[in-house]
Design a protein around this nucleic acid. Structure first.
Length: 482
RNA sequence: GGGUUCGUCGUCUAGCCUGGUCUAGGAUUCGAGGUUUGGGACCUCGCGACCCCGGUUCAAAUCCGGGCGAACCCA
């Protein structure tokens, strides 16, 4: 088995890890479409669950809107059409006939949802409306595609769409969405920074948006999530009006925000090591694997009984904020133990318990932990507490390492030359002083051979714009992005 | 957007330059059996591939054209 260094050859590492850990199979015969395998899907399901519970707890409701949208409706908001039209698929015929009405396949569901919003929303009493769905959407990427990170069919696109009576309420919703996403990324242990996107990079049809960003092991920056204030553009295009308390008809104010399976790809990338995956407890499909070490003699039975006993001890045991059940698997395959060790280390199972003759006799267990790859002896009676404690510790180590990396990869620079050098040699996200002018921003992006990520709203800056020399308004951040 | 390189068993690859030796070799995976089991062990046997379409030729994995796909570099 070939091994790659996560940082030196990230591309190869990533593909290799996903394949041998059975997360996705990239061999589906179509560019940009990947099969998510059971082990990967299980982790994805956990991730979706965390998001759903968070959204529910903040008063969102889950619904489902159709995959297909009549072309006429899709074209209603012009900026949106301009932004998404290029990668939107059109359905025009069957094998037997042309369709009477051309349809499009959603690249995101604004145009599927908002016609219904205009029917549903009649009064200020109907507001706020906060709805989400987790569905597949299609974006016909022409450039690079990559498993989970950039795909043509997003299979776990979680999008929330809200409508409000006033601009202030929409603003408040933006803050709430940011809070939700902060919690979400904390839960899946992905460090991030939040940037306000510069005007010229804003979501098509929006007023403004905030993006969560992090840096991948290859130094490229990646957008994790977008929180978007849509203002009233869509409300006007889709005629979403309500009767306010003052008996006047008004357009609603809207926001939307979304994440996808990309988050799983990022978690895998940030958490793994050169041996393979390292699953944090909130995403791990299996938390503990028990490896019986048999000797082909009469003791084997006792070993198996002991394994079962240990497994049963964990029945109904939960871990983490979301009370996820601790999943235990006994690996009883007829292969040598060493092979099993490697197999499960690749798959990133946090804890491995080894049970052989010695352990049965002495009522102990050998516990191997995936974060440090060390082994220790545990007494049977302490096993439950020890496991709970160590699972927490493993989460902590992995998170700490990810945070250290993240901190290292965001830097500020006095000169363009410095920033360029940094991007060339290390990648990451670089900040320079900027006056707030679009032309200057674009110029910097050009010179850095990257793109503008955004600025942190509360970050103070003193000095001059690196391009025009006028008073700087922000530290503006740039990077080479996915 | 521009350029370069590449496409052979499930996977990694040898062969291509210089057409015939290729009934396409190896490693690994997979299946059967044996042996073994405290870090991917070993042995025997077996299954398994020239991206697609066209051209040149007595003869194409090999040369040419096109298509599709992939990787990398530059802007």
């Amino acid at each position: 088995m070939k091994r790659y260094d996560k940082y030196d050859e990230f591309n190869k590492w990533y593909e290799d890890v996903l394949q041998y850990a059975k997360i996705v199979d990239k061999r589906y015969p179509m560019k940009g479409s990947y099969v998510i395998m059971p082990y990967g899907f299980s982790a994805l399901k956990k991730m979706k669950n965390i998001m759903s519970k968070l959204l529910d707890s903040y008063g969102h409701e889950e619904a489902y809107f159709p995959l297909l949208v009549p072309e006429k409706i899709f074209k209603k908001e012009k900026d949106f059409l301009k932004g998404f039209g290029g990668e939107t698929l059109r359905a025009t015929k069957t094998f037997l006939q042309e369709l009477d009405e051309e349809l499009i396949i959603r690249p995101t569901s604004e145009t599927a949802m908002y016609p219904m919003y205009s029917l549903w929303i009649r009064s200020w009493r109907d507001l706020p409306l906060k709805i989400y769905q987790t569905v597949n959407v299609f974006r016909w990427e022409t450039k690079m595609t990559k498993e989970l990170l950039r795909v043509r069919e997003l299979v776990a696109f979680n999008e929330s769409h809200t409508a409000h009576a006033s601009a202030e309420e929409a603003e408040k919703q933006i803050k709430e969405a940011i809070e939700i996403y902060k919690k979400f990324f904390d839960e899946i242990r992905i460090p991030y920074d939040i940037f306000k996107t510069p005007k010229w990079e804003t979501f098509a049809g929006a007023q403004y948006n905030y993006d969560f960003f992090t840096t991948m092991p290859d130094g490229k920056a990646i957008e994790l999530a977008s929180v978007i204030n849509l203002g009233q553009k869509f409300a006007k295009a889709f005629n979403i009006k309500f009767m306010d308390k003052d008996e006047k008809k008004k357009y609603v104010y809207q926001t939307c925000y979304g994440i996808s399976e990309r988050e799983l790809g990022v978690a895998i990338s940030l958490h793994g090591d050169n041996k393979g995956l390292r699953m944090i407890s909130n995403l791990a499909p299996i938390h503990i694997v028990i490896v019986p070490i048999k000797k082909n003699n009469e003791n084997d039975k006792k070993i198996m009984i002991y394994c079962e006993k240990i497994k049963n001890m964990f029945e109904g045991t939960k871990c983490g904020k979301y009370k996820a059940e601790i999943k235990v698997k006994i690996d009883n395959r007829e292969i040598r133990p060493g092979e099993k060790y490697n197999d499960w280390e690749k798959k990133g199972v946090p804890i491995r318990l080894e049970i052989g003759e010695k352990e049965v006799k002495s009522k102990t267990l050998v516990l191997a932990r995936r974060d440090k790859l060390t082994k220790e002896k545990i007494k049977e009676k302490n096993i439950k507490e020890s496991v709970k404690k160590i699972i927490k510790e493993i989460d902590k180590t992995i998170y700490r390492e990810a945070k250290e990396w993240h901190k290292k990869m965001i830097t500020k620079h006095k000169t363009l030359k410095d920033a360029l050098k940094r991007l060339r040699n290390y990648g990451g996200i670089v900040g320079v002083k900027w006056c707030g002018d679009e032309n200057c921003g674009k110029k910097i992006a050009d010179k850095l051979l990257g793109s503008a990520i955004g600025y942190k709203e509360n970050e103070k800056v003193e000095g001059k714009c690196i391009i025009c020399g006028k008073e700087a308004k922000h530290w503006m951040y740039f990077g080479r992005t996915y």
